[in-house]
Design a protein around this nucleic acid. Structure first.
Lengths: 155, 155
DNA sequence: GAGATTATGGGATATCATGGGAAAATATGG
DNA sequence: CCATATTTTCCCATGATATCCCATAATCTC
């Protein structure tokens, strides 16, 4: 199972810990780092989550900018500087740092939302509202996906 | 765990020592040299930090310049001549040389900023201002990453 | 319905950041 | 070449934090 699917609501205990859904952990099992990478979304009031491989992939892509260029610098500031490695304990829980929960408005419950290669962590009510809006928007504009790009080709 | 992620603020004691974040030390653990490489940034008021492997990679890149050319000469002066090996003590602390702290305006607190393959060391307030600017710039210009390269990267 | 897996709670333990003193290494001066 | 001063490195102590471990309840699977 390589994709993050479905939505799970788990409790945040008084220590700030929350269980990562078992299916998400299974999706991350092949990774080198036993946990998740999390950073503040810069478009929504939520936390972005992914595996270390996703960050490695991002790093490779930023290598396409010239080293020490302004673009490379801005991008790495935005993502890598803000990202946090959250290792899970033997029971599969992570501790959510205060600045992340503050950004997402999370207090006693967290919603893990599958997004395919990544996932998000929301305040449950905030997510309900945001997802309903997204659904309305999709119906209004007849949202479509671009056709798949041909794989491979000259490097 | 090959990437430098997140931002950490550590104190500089009266001896000029500061703890390298444990996760950064872990990322540098495979290296032969038990410490970091540091040199003055020539784009910002901060200290650039990395491992020896990255310096070797830089050396390869300077090979793109003609040997003994002005560019090659400038680049190697800016980086290699200025770089210093800072070994950490048994507790994971390094001593920051005065010329580096002066360049970054660091006095009693240092911010270690993850940048992927490298990291930076800032005066905390200076970094807050610079990162906020970078964030605004990135959002304004809708900075995006080039599409994934056909080869390499996780599936 | 039985066994296994998962989510949750709380106490014990280890790790990390930090401070200060002792010992060693280096530099300075006669 | 030795004595002294200065710097650097090492060692130990401490508080705060994060991690581990065990126990229990809810859920899922077969």
């Amino acid at each position: 199972m390589l994709l993050f699917l479905s939505t799970f609501q788990n409790k945040v205990d008084k220590k700030g810990r929350v269980s990562v859904p078992a299916t998400f952990r299974a999706a991350l099992a092949p990774q080198s780092f036993p946990g998740i990478i999390a950073f503040r979304s810069f478009t929504s009031a939520c936390i972005e989550g992914c595996g270390m491989d996703f960050m490695e992939n991002l790093s490779s892509r930023t290598d396409q900018f010239d080293l020490f260029s302004a673009e490379q610098d801005d991008f790495t500031s935005l993502i890598f500087a803000d990202a946090r490695q959250l290792a899970w304990d033997p029971e599969g829980r992570i501790g959510l740092p205060e600045d992340l929960t503050a950004h997402a408005g999370i207090t006693d419950t967290a919603a893990f939302v599958g997004k395919g290669r990544t996932f998000q962590i929301w305040n449950p009510e905030a997510y309900r509202a945001a997802s309903e809006e997204a659904r309305q928007r999709a119906l209004r504009t007849r949202l479509t996906l671009p056709a798949q790009r041909p794989e491979g080709g000259p490097a």
